[in-house]
């Protein structure tokens, strides 16, 4: 009994941390921090990192890492702008951009499984390759694109749209999060992701098709980076090959703060989303208080280390 309660407390830890951070800023930041408008802004700002971190959750549970997501996001924004400029309809441009993300992810997966190299090395390489592709495709400039409905995905809601509660992009994050949570719990693939991350040898012994599962994991990570790129484009309204550099670190941090273990085998969608929200809340709070960027970075860095230390202590307790 006691142990089950403890397990629940562990699961709620990221939520408790989010509430705690929010309350602290509610006290020390100006009153505008707790306004509904700011809350909406926080949610909107979480969307890009949030969507990309869903894919990363799979990757990290499976015992891997994907460093290329920031570059994929940039490449996707460039692709969308390029397609729009070439005269494609917004829906084709959006799908084309997301598809580019999927292809990038599958390339990562194929290289990792065929060459049998560690994901860190492969995705460190493709981080540069995809970034280079984006720059080449855009001739190292921003590509301007005509405004379309894509740009409304992540914009603040107009008064007549208030029935939507949050913009379409946030709904997309919510739906994708539910989807991945269900996939992890209710599909054979989800079971395999956990088992490979927990013990790849044992999974091989059990006949788990490790190569295919890994290929799919990185494919999904790329696909979700594609969705994140769509959101990024929505916010920028231009295709920018230099955008989202370092995004992968925010994404990994979200998963880790949310209880994901870099050793694999552990992590949850809910935790990851909470982790992403914690980081945005800190940023928003610091901005509202007029603190500089460097303070935000230091605070976020400390939060990451504290989260992992707490996680480690939790593990020791259990064993």
């Amino acid at each position: 009994m006691n142990k089950q309660i403890k397990e629940w407390i562990n699961k709620l830890m990221p939520l408790a941390a989010l509430v705690l951070v929010y309350i602290v800023f509610a006290f020390i930041a100006p009153p505008s921090f707790v306004s509904l408008k700011n809350l909406e802004l926080i949610v909107r700002q979480t969307t890009i990192v949030g969507i990309a971190s869903l894919g990363m959750t799979l990757v990290i549970i499976g015992g891997g890492i994907d460093l290329s997501v920031g570059s994929i996001v940039a490449l996707v924004t460039v692709c969308i702008a390029w397609l729009l400029m070439a005269g494609c309809s917004p829906i084709i441009a959006a799908l084309g951009g997301v598809f580019a993300g999927l292809v990038c992810g599958l390339i990562n997966g194929a290289l990792i499984t065929r060459l049998k190299l560690v994901p860190f090395i492969i995705t460190l390489g493709t981080l540069l390759v995809y970034r280079g592709c984006a720059k080449g495709l855009a001739h190292e400039q921003k590509i301007d694109a005509p405004l379309s409905w894509i740009n409304e995905l992540l914009a603040a809601l107009k008064p007549e749209q208030s029935w939507m509660v949050v913009p379409a992009g946030v709904w997309m994050l919510i739906l994708l999060a539910i989807l991945i949570a269900l996939v992890l719990k209710y599909t054979r693939f989800g079971l395999y992701v956990f088992s490979i991350g927990s013990n790849e040898q044992a999974s091989r012994l059990c006949g788990v098709p490790i190569e295919n599962v890994k290929l799919l994991i990185y494919g999904i990570s790329g696909l979700f980076a594609g969705f994140a790129g769509l959101m990024q484009f929505s916010r920028l309204t231009v295709g920018d090959p230099t955008v989202a550099s370092g995004l992968e670190l925010d994404v990994i941090a979200a998963v880790v703060i949310g209880g994901g273990s870099l050793a694999g085998g552990e992590g949850s969608v809910l935790g990851t989303i909470l982790g992403a929200l914690i980081m945005t809340v800190i940023r928003s709070g610091c901005t509202q208080m007029g603190l500089s960027n460097w303070v935000q970075e230091i605070v976020t860095g400390i939060i990451i280390v504290v989260a992992v230390v707490l996680d480690r202590m939790r593990h020791k307790q259990q064993s």
Partner: peptide, 24 residues
């Protein structure tokens, strides 16, 4: 496997998952 921890079982997963892993 002779190596229960290293290869036989996924130690951090549940009894049930380990049991059905070859036949989900």
């Amino acid at each position: 496997s002779e190596d229960r921890k290293g290869e036989g079982l996924a130690i951090s997963r549940s009894i049930a998952e380990n049991l059905i892993l070859s036949y989900p």
